[in-house]
Design a protein around this nucleic acid. Structure first.
Lengths: 140, 140
DNA sequence: TTGAATGCAAAAAATTTGCATATTG
DNA sequence: CAATATGCAAATTTTTTGCATTCAA
């Protein structure tokens, strides 16, 4: 992880203990919604953080590129550290299970997008919806 | 479009005028959030539908496979008719622009997923996040 | 006729905002 | 010291739910 403190300061922002705690929580969770992160943060020994601080913290960190998010399900934005081991999330529309796949499987795809649209896809942590092995076997 | 009425009835569900209006609205919009759909529905001449009917209608239609949704941005689930001309949505994290790409560019990708994970991806209308041509050129 | 769906109102979630105060740099 | 970030409370926004009534089949 490059120096978060400097990155923040370079933009006139600050590295506060709260932001550190959010990052630590995310490091433990790997993936978490604002709500989940709040719970994890509350268990690090310090006093709980208000959700608003978490939302604002995540926003700041995401703006910086230290954190990003995807939508694994209907409702919840799921955040993760940008440098966290990357993988795709395969979300089954049948049973709701979430499995993972190596980002490598999307290399060609990303190349195609670059070629046809000049688009630099961030396939890291991308969520793909579809049907898992089991569910696709039993689907109508 | 296969027969929606029968599909619904086969499951003990019903084809109501409200559901028809939701579908018509989507056909016009191509893509819409529950909110947007409500506005479009209200303009078809009939009386406006309560959001709750729209939510429940979309849920029913999605369960049936007539409608599906993706997350183009942070907040809003964007719905579309399943048989609507398919394409990928390229969402730029820089400028927020949303462009489209033919689903074909994801064929190989879907094949990979099938092979490595037995996962049947629904790449139709999939949202890909990244940086558009312009933004990726000017990014740090 | 009868259970699914609607409409309305109220509740629950989820996210954002205002502002005084505390803190970082 | 100056300006950013926090904490708290309140306001929004989004989605869900309960229930009496209507309506499709």
């Amino acid at each position: 992880m490059t120096d978060l403190g400097s990155a923040l300061r370079a933009r006139g922002m600050r590295l506060t203990p709260q932001r550190r705690r959010i990052i630590d929580a995310l490091a433990h969770l790997a993936h978490g919604t604002p709500d989940t992160i709040a719970v994890e943060v509350a268990e690090d020994g310090g006093s709980p953080l208000p959700l608003s601080t978490i939302y604002r913290g995540l926003e700041a960190l995401e703006e910086l590129g230290f954190v990003s998010h995807t939508h694994l399900d209907h409702r919840a934005p799921t955040y993760h550290l940008a440098d966290h081991a990357t993988h795709l999330h395969l979300v089954c529309l049948g049973c709701g299970s979430i499995s993972e796949a190596p980002v490598g499987v999307a290399d060609g795809f990303a190349g195609n997008l670059r070629q046809v649209a000049g688009f630099e896809a961030d396939v890291t942590h991308m969520a793909i919806h579809g049907w898992c092995d089991q569910c696709s076997a039993t689907r109508p």
